[in-house]
């Protein structure tokens, strides 16, 4: 049983078919890079897993728990970082993360302990007690990652986690995701920055127009398509190469 399993997932928004029968399996402890052009259905897939969007058809499960019919139970095991999100500017990361911990079922004391541990891990300790609105984009992203980790979930779903970060910030996020996987967590992240994928992913899935077109390890895909890098594979699969 994979950590994340998706079968025949469909989603139609009014006239737009965002997903047209997506099949995907992510194994436990894997770092899975979910790539595709804009509008391919990456964010929609993650949102269905998290219960933000209702699937039109199909099945999806997290650790064997059906996300569609038992979403609450599934979300106990998920840490989610959306592509764009807001945080209360006047709060400090500590206050905000405490609230997120409580929302995830933690006690205030457990949340406080977890905050210190996570902050040390992702270099956030210095900024824990500054107002969020005064933080740089990189530090805000750290807070975003921290809220996904606070309740120690087994599965991490990150939607374009490195977009807008400088090279140092991007490296730090990628290293962190790799470290989470090394600790046994399963990481599924969507991106269109394929160099990020090449750096840390065990498996790459390329989605285009709502369907998974290609899946495999980075090296495996390069060899299969005779490409020098994943950018070329991506372009070929998306029909532009």
């Amino acid at each position: 049983m994979g950590a994340i399993e998706i079968k025949g997932l469909k989603k139609t928004y009014k006239d737009v078919e965002a997903l047209r029968g997506l099949d995907l399996v992510v194994e436990k402890g894997e770092v899975y890079g979910f790539c595709g052009p804009n509008g391919a259905g990456k964010s929609t897939t993650l949102k269905i897993l998290v219960g933000l969007v209702h699937a039109t058809d199909g099945e999806a499960s997290i650790k064997g728990i059906d996300v569609i019919n038992d979403g609450v139970e599934a979300r106990k095991h998920i840490g989610y970082l959306p592509e764009s999100y807001g945080m209360p500017g006047w709060d400090t990361p500590r206050k905000f993360l405490t609230y997120m911990g409580i929302l995830s079922g933690m006690s205030k004391e457990d949340a406080a302990k977890a905050i210190e541990e996570i902050a040390a891990e992702i270099n956030l300790t210095e900024n824990l007690d500054r107002r969020i609105k005064t933080l740089s984009k990189g530090n805000k992203q750290r807070v975003g990652i921290a809220q996904a980790l606070i309740h120690d979930p087994a599965i991490l779903l990150f939607d374009e986690p490195t977009t807008g970060l400088d090279p140092i910030g991007r490296n730090e996020v990628l290293d962190a995701m790799k470290a989470f996987a090394d600790k046994g967590k399963t990481v599924l992240f969507s991106t269109h920055i394929l160099s990020d994928v090449e750096k840390i992913c065990d498996t790459v899935g390329i989605i285009h127009e709502g369907v998974l077109m290609e899946q495999g390890g980075p090296e495996e895909l390069r060899q299969k398509h005779g490409a020098k890098d994943l950018d070329e594979v991506f372009l070929k699969v998306a029909g532009h190469g």
Binding site: K47, V50, G51, L52, G71, V72, E73, A74, R75, K76, I78, G79, Y80, P82, S84, Y85, G86, M87, P88, M100, L103, S104, G105, G144, Q147
Partner: peptide
């Protein structure tokens, strides 16, 4: 409007 909904509703609450 504050784009907090995805973060909040990704918690295990109905």
């Amino acid at each position: 409007t504050g784009e907090r909904m995805p973060i909040i509703m990704s918690r295990p609450i109905t």
